[in-house]
């Protein structure tokens, strides 16, 4: 059996992981916060779209368009109402508060939607694929990858070419000095969290279209996102794509060898990277 197919599938899967990771990387970059509920918010967003699809009979992509501003508002409010209160402390409080949120979201979803696994449907596109010899490229995985590249291009543009991006980077440098420039860092943080949640909505859409999800699916999404961020190197959006791709390839190659090794192979590659280059593959010195 050739390794080419798992390799290609892995790269495409990496696009999804990069989408998981981009939002996590964004807020870590701006406010040094690791949101332990990141994965659970992805799952929450997927259920939100599912609810739109089932209750309002909308196509899934319309549900995504609705979910994006909604998730922005949710992230913004979360930051303003809860997380901004935690940031003056060391890392304990923000970590534990987001960990508590993770438990609340999982169980809230369980109450609202039961433990059954669900899926977002986009009609025939789901099964469409192009076949070249013994390699078949699914349309949805390909679109996911392209969207991941576009999201990362967009974030890079936003961060390095716009006024908002300048303010985000300056706030990451010093929350004190931006204040004497007329900027309230709490507001900047809220916008950053809102942006992260928009990326979460996009990630959730492709997660839900590509595979089943259930209320307990969040923590493993967090771990994939985190691994992609660390493998790629902190503070770099392109790093999340590289990290995501490496993670995806590790998983599909592992699964090709033994189906039970999929997750294990990803984790092992992650541990190998921290052993060899704890600051990630792309880290600036």
């Amino acid at each position: 059996m050739s390794l080419l197919n798992p390799l290609i599938q892995g790269v495409l899967l990496g696009g999804l992981y990069a989408l998981y990771a981009a939002g996590l990387s964004l807020i870590f970059g701006v406010m040094r916060l690791v949101n332990l509920a990141h994965g659970d918010f992805i799952v929450l967003a997927a259920y939100l779209m599912l609810a739109c699809v089932t209750a309002l009979a909308l196509p899934a992509w319309v549900a995504l368009l609705i979910a994006m501003p909604f998730m922005f508002a949710l992230g913004w409010a979360l930051q303003r109402l809860i997380l901004n209160r935690t940031l003056k402390n060391d890392l304990l409080v923000p970590l534990l508060v987001t960990f508590g949120l993770s438990i609340i979201i999982q169980n809230g979803l369980l109450l609202a939607f039961s433990a059954d696994s669900r899926r977002l449907t986009v009609g025939e596109l789901e099964i469409a694929s192009w076949t070249f010899g013994d390699i078949s490229i699914g349309v949805v995985p390909l679109i996911t990858f392209i969207v991941a590249v576009l999201v990362i291009l967009g974030l890079t543009f936003l961060f390095y070419r716009t006024r908002l991006g300048r303010i985000l980077r300056a706030t990451a440098d010093s929350t004190e000095i931006v204040q004497i420039m007329g900027i309230d860092p709490r507001h900047v943080f809220a916008i950053a969290m809102g942006l992260s949640f928009v990326v979460i909505a996009v990630a959730a859409f492709f997660m839900g279209v590509r595979a089943n999800f259930d209320p307990a699916a969040g923590p493993s999404r967090l771990l994939y996102a985190f691994e992609a961020v660390v493998i790629g190197g902190l503070g770099s959006f392109w790093g999340t794509l590289i990290g995501g791709t490496i993670l995806g390839v590790a998983q599909t190659v592992g699964a090709a060898i033994n189906p039970e090794w999929q997750q294990l192979a990803g984790h092992v590659v992650f541990l190998a990277v921290i052993l060899a280059r704890p600051r990630g593959l792309l880290a600036r010195a």
Binding site: F226, E227, V230, V268, F270, I274, P278
Partner: peptide, 18 residues
């Protein structure tokens, strides 16, 4: 111990998963 702060936290979770 090669990971710091929040990264240590999530790293330990990965190990438990392993």
């Amino acid at each position: 111990f090669r990971l710091q702060g929040a990264y240590f936290a999530v790293g330990t979770w990965v190990v438990a998963e392993v």
